[in-house]
Design a protein around this nucleic acid. Structure first.
Length: 491
RNA sequence: CGGGGAGUGGCUCAGCCUGGUAGAGCACCUGGUUCGGGACCAGGGGGUCGUAGGUUCAAAUCCUAUCUCCCCGACCA
């Protein structure tokens, strides 16, 4: 039962995604600025919800926010060899200002390790200054060949954390803490998106990092989406920018740094992981509007009675922390509103009409199917709907929202499990990556990895932190392997 | 950035081949009847046909350039 104007997923997944973005009114194309989008209010509200959830966790783990300039001297980028090489093809440069050519061009930040490194070198003096735990919310720009709304735009919004540590162990601890306690915790609990946490291979790691940890999520077409990364930068940037400190013995030591980020791409992940052919589906924890109330009336007298009832019914919702909206528009039929709010992904709909006033009930309809709420033929619909008493409604809504949150996570996890395959040879891998993730014992080289990518379009998404243990036979080289890798096509 | 497709009211598109006063459906506005799963009738508003240049008495239509979007590839959060 696809909505008007929504291409079914099975027909064209890419078009479906674009239809959701447009239909749910999340973004507009900034067609006058190639590759950029306008975050419309509903899209930006999702970003604000993501920011809130992450910012709370970033601060709870001891970090503070700050802000560095958008423009970075071009020479800064050149100081770390791998870093320049990695980002050079993607940077935009400012060469002129005030009508004059600049002596040294600036680049528009593609990420801020370099400029922050410069200042960290000034700020860090002693072991007592460490760890230095900072984060900034910012926009960055990376010139993209093939942009897609939220998933890959030339300018995007993100947070980037940058920390300095006295030794490798502390930097490593930080890198993993962010991955587990900030990123995966947020994405799994608030976005209802199960992720696989792992290590990037040399080929896939951040340019200039010692190692990169990541979390990978599965989209409904079986492809992987990198939902966040956390880098142990080793001493690479510290050495390039001279970040050093006096240790307890008054010896100068190069420091160790980390950086980590998640971006507005998460909105794309949210859409592609949860939504259906009827439109967007937003997990209740994240939803800017969790419940929409649709009043039903035929005339002014009914309208007055119904609105009074709606006021009474919703009176205790706000104090209970339920985020809701009452759709009072009177030029649209209820049926139209149902479809519209489903398209926009609101988790729960409550209908209040004259019959409900009489029976002290309301109709309640979850955005996605729930075991305890069945399709209600009496309501003329094929969609799940239940009539429940007004008494104790706030409690029931709160618990239903929690139930929906769990259902969404479970549903996404089940989908991932059903689309994850084991491969013990190359043919099995080729077959598996057509519809999902492939787990396989891996002892190949970087060259092997590149060859596999050329031949199959799939990459090693990560070496999962959770390993089966023991040894296996590499599916590609036939050698003894001590680790399992996840292969998939990626966004 | 290479290959392919497309830009005409807010949306989906027709008109272009064969140049001659810009159309439809949906959406929007007004009024009325409706209203528990995408209402109906009547009236109305809205488009320098992506942009720039050229050909022509005359260009949405033909030519050139350019921008943007979509699909496929190489690059990436």
């Amino acid at each position: 039962m696809a909505k008007e104007g929504i291409t079914p997923r099975a027909q064209d997944y890419a078009q479906w995604y674009l239809d959701i973005v447009r239909g749910a009114d999340l973004a507009d194309y900034a067609e006058v600025v190639r590759g950029c989008i306008v975050f419309k209010p509903t899209g930006y509200a999702l970003w604000e919800a993501i920011q809130r959830g992450l910012d709370d966790r970033i601060k709870a783990t001891g970090h503070v926010n700050f802000y560095f300039p958008l423009l970075i001297p071009k020479s800064f980028l050149m100081k770390e060899a791998e870093h320049v090489e990695g980002f050079a093809p993607q940077v935009a440069e400012v060469t002129h200002a005030a009508g004059e050519k600049l002596a040294e061009p600036y680049v528009i930040r593609p990420t801020s390790e370099t400029i922050i490194g410069y200042f960290y070198a000034k700020w860090v003096r002693s072991w007592r200054d460490l760890p230095l735990l900072g984060n900034q919310w910012a926009n960055v720009m990376r010139w993209e060949m093939r942009p897609r709304p939220f998933l890959r735009t030339t300018e995007f919004l993100w947070q980037e954390g940058h920390t300095v540590h006295a030794d490798h162990e502390d930097a490593e601890r930080e890198t993993l803490k962010i991955l587990h306690e900030v990123y995966a915790d947020f994405v799994e609990k608030e976005m209802a998106l199960p992720v696989i946490k792992g290590l990037k291979t040399e080929k896939e790691k951040f340019p200039g990092a010692l190692r990169t940890y990541c979390m990978e999520a599965m989209m409904q077409d079986g492809r992987a989406l990198q939902a966040g990364t956390s880098h142990n930068l080793g001493q690479n940037f510290a050495k390039a920018f001279g970040i050093q400190y006096s240790d307890r013995n008054n010896q100068m030591q190069p420091a160790w740094t980390t950086s980590w980020g998640v971006s507005s791409r998460l909105i794309g992940a949210l859409i592609m992981a949860h939504s259906d052919d009827d439109g967007l589906v937003i997990p209740p924890h994240l939803a800017p509007v969790q419940v929409v109330v649709v009043p039903i009336f035929k005339n002014d007298a009914e309208r007055a009675a119904v609105m009074a009832a709606v006021q009474a019914i919703t009176a205790d919702w706000r104090p209970r922390g339920i985020r809701f909206h009452i759709d009072e528009r009177d030029h649209l039929t209820p049926g139209f509103k149902y479809n519209e709010w489903e398209l926009k992904g609101v988790p729960l709909r409550v209908e209040v009409g004259p019959k409900d006033i009489e029976k002290k009930s309301v109709a309640i309809a979850p955005r996605i199917a729930q075991d305890n709420i069945n399709a209600n033929a009496a309501a003329g619909g094929r969609k799940p709907k239940a009539f429940v008493p007004q008494q104790g409604l706030a409690d029931q809504i709160s618990s239903l929202l929690e139930q929906l949150q769990r259902t969404m996570y479970d549903r996404a996890l089940r989908f991932r499990n059903e689309h994850t395959f084991e491969a013990s040879n190359y043919d099995e891998l080729k077959q598996g990556i057509e519809s999902g993730f492939v787990r396989a014992w891996w002892a190949g080289s970087r060259d092997d990895e590149e060859r596999i990518q050329e031949e199959t379009k799939a990459t090693i998404r990560c070496i999962p932190l959770e390993q089966p243990g023991g040894k296996g036979k590499c599916f590609y080289t036939g050698e003894e392997a001590s680790q399992v890798a996840i292969f998939a096509k990626a966004y």
